[in-house]
Protein backbone atom coordinates (compact mmCIF):
# COMPACT_ATOMS: atom_id res chain seq x y z
CA UNK A 1 0.00 0.00 0.00
CA UNK A 2 2.73 2.43 0.98
CA UNK A 3 4.72 1.32 -2.06
CA UNK A 4 1.79 2.11 -4.34
CA UNK A 5 1.23 5.47 -2.64
CA UNK A 6 4.81 6.44 -3.31
CA UNK A 7 4.16 5.92 -7.00
CA UNK A 8 0.99 8.01 -7.10
CA UNK A 9 1.92 11.52 -8.27
CA UNK A 10 -1.41 13.03 -7.23
CA UNK A 11 -1.01 11.75 -3.70
CA UNK A 12 2.59 12.89 -3.45
CA UNK A 13 1.82 16.44 -4.59
CA UNK A 14 -1.13 16.67 -2.22
CA UNK A 15 0.82 15.15 0.61
CA UNK A 16 3.74 17.61 0.14
CA UNK A 17 1.42 20.64 0.12
CA UNK A 18 -0.40 19.50 3.25
CA UNK A 19 2.85 18.39 4.88
CA UNK A 20 4.61 21.72 4.37
CA UNK A 21 1.59 23.72 5.52
CA UNK A 22 1.20 21.47 8.56
CA UNK A 23 4.84 22.02 9.55
CA UNK A 24 4.34 25.77 9.18
CA UNK A 25 1.22 25.56 11.35
CA UNK A 26 2.93 23.44 13.99
CA UNK A 27 5.95 25.77 14.25
CA UNK A 28 3.52 28.71 14.32
CA UNK A 29 4.72 31.46 16.69
CA UNK A 30 8.25 30.08 16.64
CA UNK A 31 8.73 31.13 13.03
CA UNK A 32 6.31 34.06 12.79
CA UNK A 33 8.20 37.40 12.54
CA UNK A 34 5.61 38.90 14.88
CA UNK A 35 5.21 36.45 17.72
CA UNK A 36 2.80 38.47 19.82
CA UNK A 37 -0.39 36.62 20.76
CA UNK A 38 -2.63 36.32 17.69
CA UNK A 39 0.03 38.20 15.68
CA UNK A 40 -1.79 41.34 16.73
CA UNK A 41 0.97 43.99 16.97
CA UNK A 42 -0.70 47.12 15.73
CA UNK A 43 1.53 49.87 14.45
CA UNK A 44 -0.60 52.73 13.17
CA UNK A 45 2.23 54.33 11.21
CA UNK A 46 2.75 51.23 9.06
CA UNK A 47 -0.70 50.81 7.49
CA UNK A 48 -1.11 48.95 4.20
CA UNK A 49 2.56 48.60 3.37
CA UNK A 50 3.22 46.72 0.12
CA UNK A 51 4.96 43.34 0.30
CA UNK A 52 8.72 43.41 0.77
CA UNK A 53 8.84 46.80 2.50
CA UNK A 54 11.73 47.30 4.91
CA UNK A 55 11.25 49.57 7.94
CA UNK A 56 13.41 50.79 10.82
CA UNK A 57 12.32 50.94 14.45
CA UNK A 58 13.56 51.35 17.97
CA UNK A 59 12.72 48.85 20.62
CA UNK A 60 10.93 50.83 23.30
CA UNK A 61 11.13 49.79 26.92
CA UNK A 62 8.12 47.80 27.99
CA UNK A 63 5.75 49.53 30.41
CA UNK A 64 4.79 46.36 32.26
CA UNK A 65 7.22 44.41 34.34
CA UNK A 66 9.11 42.14 32.05
CA UNK A 67 8.36 38.65 33.22
CA UNK A 68 10.20 35.77 31.72
CA UNK A 69 8.22 33.94 29.04
CA UNK A 70 9.34 30.43 28.19
CA UNK A 71 9.95 29.38 24.59
CA UNK A 72 7.33 26.67 25.11
CA UNK A 73 4.69 29.23 26.00
CA UNK A 74 5.61 31.45 23.08
CA UNK A 75 5.27 28.47 20.75
CA UNK A 76 1.88 27.58 22.17
CA UNK A 77 0.09 30.90 22.60
CA UNK A 78 2.51 33.59 21.44
CA UNK A 79 4.32 36.17 23.49
CA UNK A 80 1.86 37.92 25.84
CA UNK A 81 4.18 40.94 26.32
CA UNK A 82 5.83 41.51 23.00
CA UNK A 83 8.43 44.17 22.44
CA UNK A 84 7.09 47.67 22.01
CA UNK A 85 7.98 49.21 18.71
CA UNK A 86 8.67 52.85 18.01
CA UNK A 87 8.85 53.27 14.30
CA UNK A 88 11.26 55.80 12.80
CA UNK A 89 10.68 57.49 9.45
CA UNK A 90 13.29 58.25 6.79
CA UNK A 91 14.61 61.47 8.34
CA UNK A 92 13.90 60.59 11.94
CA UNK A 93 17.33 59.31 12.91
CA UNK A 94 18.54 62.59 14.44
CA UNK A 95 15.34 63.37 16.29
CA UNK A 96 15.22 60.09 17.98
CA UNK A 97 18.88 60.40 18.83
CA UNK A 98 18.03 63.70 20.58
CA UNK A 99 15.00 62.30 22.39
CA UNK A 100 16.16 59.29 24.24
CA UNK A 101 19.76 59.19 23.38
CA UNK A 102 19.83 55.69 22.03
CA UNK A 103 22.92 54.32 20.42
CA UNK A 104 22.66 53.47 16.74
CA UNK A 105 22.78 49.84 17.68
CA UNK A 106 19.27 50.23 19.12
CA UNK A 107 17.90 50.89 15.67
CA UNK A 108 16.64 47.74 14.07
CA UNK A 109 15.12 46.93 10.72
CA UNK A 110 12.15 44.78 9.89
CA UNK A 111 10.98 43.52 6.51
CA UNK A 112 7.32 42.81 5.79
CA UNK A 113 7.47 40.00 3.20
CA UNK A 114 3.74 40.07 2.56
CA UNK A 115 3.17 43.68 3.59
CA UNK A 116 0.89 44.89 6.37
CA UNK A 117 -2.86 45.19 6.75
CA UNK A 118 -5.03 48.19 7.54
CA UNK A 119 -3.93 48.14 11.20
CA UNK A 120 -0.25 47.84 10.34
CA UNK A 121 -0.02 44.18 11.38
CA UNK A 122 2.38 41.83 9.63
CA UNK A 123 0.36 39.81 7.09
CA UNK A 124 2.90 36.95 6.93
CA UNK A 125 2.63 36.37 10.68
CA UNK A 126 -1.14 36.46 10.55
CA UNK A 127 -1.13 33.97 7.68
CA UNK A 128 1.11 31.59 9.65
CA UNK A 129 -1.03 31.78 12.79
CA UNK A 130 -4.17 31.56 10.63
CA UNK A 131 -2.98 28.22 9.20
CA UNK A 132 -3.08 26.90 12.74
CA UNK A 133 -6.73 27.75 13.06
CA UNK A 134 -7.61 26.20 9.70
CA UNK A 135 -5.72 22.97 10.31
CA UNK A 136 -6.87 22.60 13.93
CA UNK A 137 -10.50 23.00 12.95
CA UNK A 138 -10.05 20.68 9.97
CA UNK A 139 -8.36 18.04 12.08
CA UNK A 140 -10.74 18.12 15.02
CA UNK A 141 -13.82 18.28 12.81
CA UNK A 142 -12.48 15.34 10.80
CA UNK A 143 -11.77 13.23 13.88
CA UNK A 144 -15.09 13.97 15.53
CA UNK A 145 -17.05 13.43 12.33
CA UNK A 146 -15.30 10.07 11.93
CA UNK A 147 -16.03 9.03 15.50
CA UNK A 148 -19.68 10.03 15.32
CA UNK A 149 -20.20 8.76 11.78
CA UNK A 150 -18.51 5.40 12.37
CA UNK A 151 -20.46 4.86 15.58
CA UNK A 152 -23.84 5.64 14.09
CA UNK A 153 -23.08 3.95 10.75
CA UNK A 154 -21.96 0.71 12.39
CA UNK A 155 -24.95 0.50 14.70
CA UNK A 156 -27.40 1.41 11.98
CA UNK A 157 -26.01 -1.09 9.49
CA UNK A 158 -25.35 -3.92 11.91
CA UNK A 159 -28.57 -3.99 13.89
CA UNK A 160 -30.89 -3.07 11.03
CA UNK A 161 -34.63 -3.01 11.64
CA UNK A 162 -36.06 -0.17 13.71
CA UNK A 163 -32.66 1.06 14.89
CA UNK A 164 -31.62 1.42 11.28
CA UNK A 165 -34.85 3.16 10.34
CA UNK A 166 -34.47 5.69 13.13
CA UNK A 167 -30.79 6.36 12.49
CA UNK A 168 -31.30 6.60 8.73
CA UNK A 169 -34.01 9.15 9.43
CA UNK A 170 -31.61 11.06 11.68
CA UNK A 171 -29.00 10.98 8.95
CA UNK A 172 -31.50 12.28 6.43
CA UNK A 173 -32.51 15.11 8.76
CA UNK A 174 -28.94 16.25 9.35
CA UNK A 175 -28.25 15.84 5.66
CA UNK A 176 -30.94 18.38 4.86
CA UNK A 177 -29.93 21.10 7.33
CA UNK A 178 -27.51 23.63 5.77
CA UNK A 179 -24.24 23.93 7.66
CA UNK A 180 -24.60 27.69 7.93
CA UNK A 181 -27.88 27.22 9.72
CA UNK A 182 -26.25 24.83 12.19
CA UNK A 183 -23.46 27.34 12.80
CA UNK A 184 -25.89 30.19 13.32
CA UNK A 185 -28.06 28.08 15.59
CA UNK A 186 -25.06 27.04 17.64
CA UNK A 187 -23.88 30.62 18.04
CA UNK A 188 -27.09 31.24 20.01
CA UNK A 189 -25.99 29.06 22.92
CA UNK A 190 -22.28 28.47 22.42
CA UNK A 191 -19.78 31.30 22.82
CA UNK A 192 -18.55 32.47 19.45
CA UNK A 193 -15.18 30.92 18.89
CA UNK A 194 -13.14 27.95 17.85
CA UNK A 195 -15.40 25.38 19.52
CA UNK A 196 -18.54 26.58 17.90
CA UNK A 197 -16.97 26.31 14.45
CA UNK A 198 -15.61 22.85 15.23
CA UNK A 199 -18.96 21.57 16.46
CA UNK A 200 -20.77 23.06 13.47
CA UNK A 201 -18.37 21.48 10.97
CA UNK A 202 -18.37 18.12 12.71
CA UNK A 203 -22.17 18.10 12.89
CA UNK A 204 -22.47 18.61 9.18
CA UNK A 205 -19.72 16.23 7.99
CA UNK A 206 -20.46 13.12 10.08
CA UNK A 207 -23.48 12.36 7.93
CA UNK A 208 -21.46 11.26 4.94
CA UNK A 209 -19.22 9.07 7.08
CA UNK A 210 -22.25 7.43 8.65
CA UNK A 211 -23.81 6.74 5.25
CA UNK A 212 -20.67 5.13 3.87
CA UNK A 213 -20.00 3.06 7.00
CA UNK A 214 -23.64 1.96 7.13
CA UNK A 215 -23.52 0.83 3.51
CA UNK A 216 -20.30 -1.08 3.97
CA UNK A 217 -21.55 -2.67 7.18
CA UNK A 218 -24.67 -3.85 5.39
CA UNK A 219 -22.47 -5.35 2.71
CA UNK A 220 -19.96 -7.01 5.05
CA UNK A 221 -22.42 -8.38 7.57
CA UNK A 222 -23.74 -10.74 4.87
CA UNK A 223 -20.26 -12.16 4.35
CA UNK A 224 -19.66 -15.57 5.78
CA UNK A 225 -16.78 -14.59 8.05
CA UNK A 226 -19.21 -12.48 10.05
CA UNK A 227 -21.52 -15.47 10.37
CA UNK A 228 -18.54 -17.55 11.47
CA UNK A 229 -17.78 -14.95 14.14
CA UNK A 230 -21.41 -15.03 15.31
CA UNK A 231 -21.30 -18.83 15.52
CA UNK A 232 -18.33 -18.50 17.85
CA UNK A 233 -20.48 -16.34 20.10
CA UNK A 234 -18.44 -13.15 19.74
CA UNK A 235 -20.16 -10.04 21.06
CA UNK A 236 -21.78 -7.62 18.63
CA UNK A 237 -19.29 -4.92 19.57
CA UNK A 238 -16.37 -7.21 18.86
CA UNK A 239 -17.83 -8.15 15.47
CA UNK A 240 -18.47 -4.52 14.59
CA UNK A 241 -15.12 -3.14 15.73
CA UNK A 242 -12.73 -6.01 14.99
CA UNK A 243 -14.37 -7.72 12.05
CA UNK A 244 -16.30 -5.07 10.13
CA UNK A 245 -14.66 -1.72 10.86
CA UNK A 246 -11.12 -2.58 9.64
CA UNK A 247 -12.61 -3.60 6.31
CA UNK A 248 -13.93 -0.08 5.78
CA UNK A 249 -10.57 1.61 6.32
CA UNK A 250 -10.06 2.18 2.59
CA UNK A 251 -13.15 4.30 2.08
CA UNK A 252 -12.71 5.92 5.49
CA UNK A 253 -9.23 7.17 4.56
CA UNK A 254 -10.59 8.75 1.40
CA UNK A 255 -13.50 10.24 3.31
CA UNK A 256 -11.26 11.60 6.07
CA UNK A 257 -9.14 13.60 3.62
CA UNK A 258 -12.22 14.88 1.79
CA UNK A 259 -13.82 15.87 5.09
CA UNK A 260 -10.64 17.63 6.17
CA UNK A 261 -10.82 19.76 3.02
CA UNK A 262 -14.54 20.37 3.48
CA UNK A 263 -14.01 21.47 7.09
CA UNK A 264 -11.33 23.97 6.07
CA UNK A 265 -13.57 25.44 3.39
CA UNK A 266 -16.44 25.60 5.83
CA UNK A 267 -14.35 27.39 8.43
CA UNK A 268 -13.19 29.87 5.82
CA UNK A 269 -16.78 30.43 4.73
CA UNK A 270 -17.96 30.96 8.29
CA UNK A 271 -15.05 33.31 8.96
CA UNK A 272 -15.89 35.26 5.84
CA UNK A 273 -19.51 35.65 6.97
CA UNK A 274 -18.37 36.73 10.42
CA UNK A 275 -19.85 33.63 12.03
CA UNK A 276 -16.51 32.05 12.72
CA UNK A 277 -13.74 32.57 15.21
CA UNK A 278 -13.86 36.05 16.74
CA UNK A 279 -11.12 38.66 16.16
CA UNK A 280 -8.32 39.27 16.83
CA UNK A 281 -7.57 35.56 16.23
CA UNK A 282 -6.42 35.53 12.63
CA UNK A 283 -8.20 33.13 10.27
CA UNK A 284 -7.83 32.99 6.54
CA UNK A 285 -11.54 33.40 5.90
CA UNK A 286 -11.72 36.50 8.07
CA UNK A 287 -8.64 37.95 6.38
CA UNK A 288 -10.35 37.66 3.01
CA UNK A 289 -13.35 39.44 4.46
CA UNK A 290 -11.30 42.24 6.08
CA UNK A 291 -9.51 42.99 2.85
CA UNK A 292 -12.35 42.38 0.43
CA UNK A 293 -12.70 46.11 -0.14
CA UNK A 294 -9.21 46.29 -1.60
CA UNK A 295 -10.10 43.83 -4.37
CA UNK A 296 -11.12 46.67 -6.65
CA UNK A 297 -8.17 48.84 -5.65
CA UNK A 298 -4.48 48.51 -6.40
CA UNK A 299 -3.71 46.26 -3.46
CA UNK A 300 -6.02 43.38 -4.38
CA UNK A 301 -3.27 41.02 -3.24
CA UNK A 302 -4.36 41.64 0.35
CA UNK A 303 -7.53 39.61 -0.20
CA UNK A 304 -5.93 37.26 -2.69
CA UNK A 305 -3.13 36.03 -0.40
CA UNK A 306 -5.40 34.33 2.17
CA UNK A 307 -7.73 33.21 -0.63
CA UNK A 308 -4.84 31.54 -2.40
CA UNK A 309 -3.74 29.86 0.82
CA UNK A 310 -7.22 28.38 1.35
CA UNK A 311 -7.23 27.12 -2.22
CA UNK A 312 -3.78 25.57 -1.88
CA UNK A 313 -4.59 23.71 1.34
CA UNK A 314 -7.97 22.42 0.13
CA UNK A 315 -6.39 21.38 -3.15
CA UNK A 316 -3.67 19.55 -1.25
CA UNK A 317 -6.21 17.49 0.66
CA UNK A 318 -8.32 16.85 -2.42
CA UNK A 319 -5.27 15.65 -4.38
CA UNK A 320 -4.43 13.32 -1.52
CA UNK A 321 -7.95 11.97 -1.51
CA UNK A 322 -7.89 11.51 -5.30
CA UNK A 323 -4.64 9.60 -5.07
CA UNK A 324 -6.04 7.38 -2.33
CA UNK A 325 -9.23 6.80 -4.28
CA UNK A 326 -7.31 5.72 -7.40
CA UNK A 327 -5.39 3.30 -5.25
CA UNK A 328 -8.54 1.84 -3.69
CA UNK A 329 -10.15 1.46 -7.11
CA UNK A 330 -7.26 -0.53 -8.54
CA UNK A 331 -7.22 -2.62 -5.40
CA UNK A 332 -10.89 -3.48 -5.74
CA UNK A 333 -10.38 -4.41 -9.40
Amino acid sequence: MLQALRKSKLFLIGFSICGILSIVAILGYSIAPDNSSNANRIVQEWKNLPPGTCKLYIEAASQTKSTHVSAWQIWLTGNPNPIKIKPIGEGDKHHSADNRNPTTSNIQSIRFWLGTDQFGRDVLSRMIIGSRVSLTIGFIAMISSLLLGVFIGLISGYYGGRTDKFLSWLIAVFWSVPTLLIAMGLSLFLPKGLYQVMVATALSTWVEVARVVRGQTLQFKEREFIMAAKINGFSSWRIMLIHILPNTKGSLTVLATTNFAAAILLEAGLGFLGLGVSPPTPTWGMMVKENMGYLVLDNAYMALIPGFAIMLLVMGFNLMSMGLRDLMDTKSN
Binding site: R223, F225, M227, A228, A229, I231, G233, P246, N247
Partner: peptide
Protein backbone atom coordinates in the same frame (compact mmCIF):
# COMPACT_ATOMS: atom_id res chain seq x y z
CA UNK B 1 -29.82 -21.05 22.88
CA UNK B 2 -26.88 -18.77 22.19
CA UNK B 3 -23.79 -19.54 20.12
CA UNK B 4 -21.38 -21.27 20.57
CA UNK B 5 -23.56 -24.38 20.70
CA UNK B 6 -20.85 -26.99 20.25
CA UNK B 7 -21.81 -27.25 16.60
CA UNK B 8 -19.60 -25.49 14.09
CA UNK B 9 -19.87 -24.68 10.43
CA UNK B 10 -17.61 -24.49 7.38
CA UNK B 11 -18.94 -22.42 4.51
CA UNK B 12 -18.95 -22.79 0.77
CA UNK B 13 -16.89 -19.83 -0.34
CA UNK B 14 -13.43 -19.80 1.20
CA UNK B 15 -12.94 -16.28 -0.18
CA UNK B 16 -15.66 -14.69 1.91
CA UNK B 17 -15.46 -16.87 5.00
CA UNK B 18 -12.18 -15.38 6.21
CA UNK B 19 -11.80 -11.82 7.45
CA UNK B 20 -9.45 -10.14 4.93
CA UNK B 21 -7.95 -8.11 7.78
CA UNK B 22 -6.95 -11.04 9.98
Amino acid sequence: LQPPTGIQMVFQDPYSSLNPNQ
